[in-house]
């Protein structure tokens, strides 16, 4: 009996590994999906960066205009949305 329960559990995990690529969860992070979703975004290259609401770690607003004329390095960090 226990062996069948274990087999069912392992089988469920096996099915999960097979169907993962077809799920929205499984498509996350793949390069091809990102390229498809951002196909039109290349038109931003060479144009002014769109207004962006920035805040310091303390919560103070950083006016976007104050950054104009300066070199700005923007790091985008992906985080898991639990």
């Amino acid at each position: 009996m226990l062996r069948w329960v274990a087999t069912a559990f392992i089988g469920a995990l096996l099915v999960l590994t097979l169907v993962l690529p077809g799920t929205s969860l499984g498509r996350r992070g793949t390069e091809s999906a990102t390229r498809m979703e951002t196909a039109g975004e290349s038109s931003f290259v060479g144009r002014p960066f769109p207004p962006l609401a920035l805040r310091t770690p303390e919560g103070e607003a950083i006016p976007w205009e104050t950054l104009q004329g300066h070199r700005v390095l923007i790091t985008l960090e992906r985080s898991v949305d639990w």
């Binding site: 995990l13 590994t17 993962l20 499984g26 996350r28 992070g29 992906r78 898991v80």
Partner: peptide
């Protein structure tokens, strides 16, 4: 490993 595959890291 399944979880690793889901994560983008």
């Amino acid at each position: 490993r399944i979880f690793v595959w889901i994560l983008g890291d």
